[in-house]
Design a protein around this nucleic acid. Structure first.
Lengths: 228, 228
DNA sequence: CCAAAAGTGTTACTCATACACCCATGA
DNA sequence: TCATGGGTGTATGAGTAACACTTTTGG
């Protein structure tokens, strides 16, 4: 007996991307303005349909590159949304992804999307179930950030300890003690202190650090677990 | 401008279920033997295609009920697998779910599936990418079990402390100290000690406990976080 | 009375938290 | 010289981990 696949119905599948950025102070969300019906003119996550010869990761990458001009963006699949009435005009199953964009990336937003960054703490109401997608993305981002060094994806290559602390404070919506934070980070031993200083924030200047990916992966393979 | 959806291609979507059970000693996996090509006769996760008027959760529930006769099984969506060549005969996108089945459930396996329980520590090689699905499911199960009281889904309604400890030991593949484990559980204050004893395991007998779902949810709403 | 599992508290240690002052520099 | 942010160490408390003996009872 051979399976006959033709009896099964097929579905439209889309990806929707929750794009996070960090400006040194707030977590931001890159949203696009719909230029077609339904819900034309309203804010939405950027998305696109999955093509025939494409994995979901491929689709999400294509959508992100088309919007931002960037390649190799950090991306993680989140969840599949399949409520029958989630989009009014057609039955579309959508898979959400979240992306992390570093502030020093040479981002060049494609005009056709009318995209805009919004503070994660106050962004407009989104179409369909996109609000829920964002909510779930924040939950996952927090979990990931607490167990893996993905925070660095949101920072420029070189950053100050204050940048790093501000980032984690805004991700987890908590304040940390400067000394405790720094000694925790130092005890991880996965940063390299450069001999450069950021002179824009103070007269004294503050040292810049880099995330040492090789060292981290070496420690990982020796059983080290990132935990913040 | 209105979007024309007809230009986008549609996909076959399936769900695949990783079904966990606990027999008091080991975590088990319920697998089915394929009775159609390709890979006829090999072991596989139970799955099925997503119908038109069905969410993914609906599909997974339908598949599980068809196999086990049970309703209201604990179920969580895991991940969407979309590699182009993941199934050789057709491009099928599959969403994995994991399910937890309690040992005291009146499970009545549908004969047509040739299903069988296997110890999670030694089960046969599975078709396609199902091995990877299982691996990811175990990771998620561990995470969930450490942050939410889902362990009870795998136990009968009444269970001994030893049952509970054995369960967590096999989930996390670690041994715990009896006294520390019990005092941790007691400090959570989410179990009810019944006045019944399980007399099968010893002459003295050991008290049976129930998970107090109401109390847990009340504590949850007051900010309590389950953590083991 | 003995074998086998159930039940029960205390101590030591590790890790997280709280906390305040001096330093370097450009204006 | 002073105003501003950068950089640094210690003491306390909480929570986790280590550890052994007594109780019960059916055979």
């Amino acid at each position: 007996m051979k399976k006959d696949y033709s009896q099964y119905i097929k579905h439209l599948i889309a990806v929707d991307c929750i794009i996070f950025g960090f400006d040194g102070e707030n977590l931001n969300l890159l949203l696009v303005k719909r230029n077609f019906e339904p819900k034309k003119g309203e804010w939405s996550l950027v998305g696109g349909f999955v093509n025939a010869e494409e994995t979901l990761d491929d689709s999400a990458n294509r959508v992100l590159t088309s919007l931002t001009g960037l390649e190799n963006i950090y991306l993680e699949q989140l969840k599949c949304y399949s409520e029958l009435e989630r989009e009014p005009t057609a039955r579309i199953i959508s898979v959400s992804y979240y992306a992390l964009i570093s502030t020093d990336e040479n981002i060049r937003i494609n005009e056709k999307y009318s995209a805009k960054w919004f503070d994660l703490k106050q962004f407009p109401n989104l179409i369909f179930d996109h609000n829920k997608m964002v909510q779930n993305a924040v939950t996952r981002l927090r979990y990931r950030a607490s167990t893996q060094p993905i925070g660095f994806e949101l920072l420029p290559e070189k950053f100050t300890m204050k940048d790093l602390q501000s980032l984690y404070e805004v991700i987890f919506d908590e304040k940390y003690d400067k000394r405790n934070f720094i000694s925790k980070i130092n005890s991880m031993d996965i940063l390299v202190k450069t001999d450069e200083k950021d002179m824009t924030s103070s007269r004294k200047g503050s040292f810049l650090y880099r995330f040492d990916k090789e060292k981290y992966h070496k420690k990982l393979s020796q059983g080290y677990l990132f935990k913040i």
